[in-house]
């Protein structure tokens, strides 16, 4: 197992930093206007993982976020519900209750989020508990220390074990790219996570900067593409952290469209982890219809 893994990782192509930055920047210049903008905003809305991951999170806050997830714009039923609400394990049952029957999934972070520095049995138990409380999706973190130390086998085996603990729940593997230092590492970690069974790979916890930069997202999308062409398995992508504006969200959709193509333009395979971007998407959508920007108090802060 381990010899094969090392061999596979050695075959992963390197990433040239100047080149990838240039490509990501050139795709930021796509002009998304009128019909494309409206369709893109709706699509981005349906791909959101509305997230709250703070120590001070309350049941009330989670209930409010879940309402927003089901009906982002009161009075406009044409705006789709978001893909999921992402919370800490202790708040899963609250979210599950509010979201029941809505089509919005419940995602829970697990495995000693955000650092992942707990023993493997604790990670597995953390995951099992979250699934037992009703999580449809698990967002795990990798052990960056082990990865940076070159102990790829350990990282691989932990993902395999957590995937096993997930049962029917879908597994998103957070690489925490801000701590991986190089694009080469990001690409290698992406292949490692996909090889170990990740259903999604995700950039960041949101606790570390830089998070979901366009370049890092592009590196991961290219890894997903190569994995698909080699194995036929479509792995999803979730950028998270620092995504606040519609412009950023649309740029992410451009990256997906032009790297992975049509098949990935669905909430099943692409998610945007964010807490504040929803209101900017709504504000832009209203502006597209009325021609004017509304006061921010017209949008609920949840």
């Amino acid at each position: 197992m381990s010899a094969v893994l090392s061999l596979d990782l050695a075959r992963v192509p390197t990433v040239d930093q100047v080149g990838i930055d240039e490509r990501a920047a050139s795709l930021a210049k796509r002009s998304i206007k009128t019909t494309a903008k409206r369709a893109g905003i709706r699509l981005a809305m349906s791909m959101l993982d509305l997230t709250t991951l703070e120590g001070k999170d309350s049941e009330g806050k989670v209930r409010q976020l879940c309402q927003k997830a089901i009906r982002p714009m009161p009075g406009d039923a044409t705006i789709p519900h978001v893909a999921a609400v992402c919370v800490y394990p202790n708040l899963v049952s609250v979210a599950k209750e509010v979201l029941a029957g809505s089509g919005v999934k419940v995602a829970s972070v697990a495995t000693g989020f955000p650092a992942g520095l707990v023993p493997l049995p604790v990670k597995i138990e953390d995951t099992r508990q979250a699934v037992a409380m009703g999580a449809d999706e698990i967002d795990m973190v990798i052990d960056r220390g082990a990865f940076l130390a070159g102990d790829y086998d350990r990282v691989f085996e932990e993902i395999v074990a957590v995937k096993d603990a997930c049962g029917p729940a879908r597994l998103k593997v957070i690489l925490e790219t801000g701590e991986l230092e190089t694009y080469d590492n990001v690409r290698r970690a992406s292949h490692l996570a996909m090889g170990a069974g990740a259903d999604f790979i995700k950039t960041s916890t949101g606790k570390i900067q830089p998070a979901a930069t366009p370049s890092v997202v592009l590196v991961m999308l290219e890894a997903i593409r190569d994995h698909y062409l080699e194995t036929g398995r479509r792995v999803g992508m979730k950028p998270a952290g620092g995504i606040r504006t519609s412009k950023q969200a649309l740029h992410l959709l451009v990256l997906v469209k032009e790297t992975l193509g049509d098949a990935w333009l669905t909430p099943d395979l692409f998610r945007i982890g964010a807490s504040t971007v929803a209101n900017d998407l709504l504000m832009q959508l209203v502006k597209e219809t009325t021609g004017r920007y509304q006061n921010e108090d017209y949008f609920t802060k949840d």
Binding site: K33, A36, A39, L229, T231, L253, K257, G261
Partner: peptide, 15 residues
Amino acid sequence: KPRLEFGGAWEYAPA
């Protein structure tokens, strides 16, 4: 064989 499809799932409007 797995193939990528670059079609019109989300088409850019003329700009």
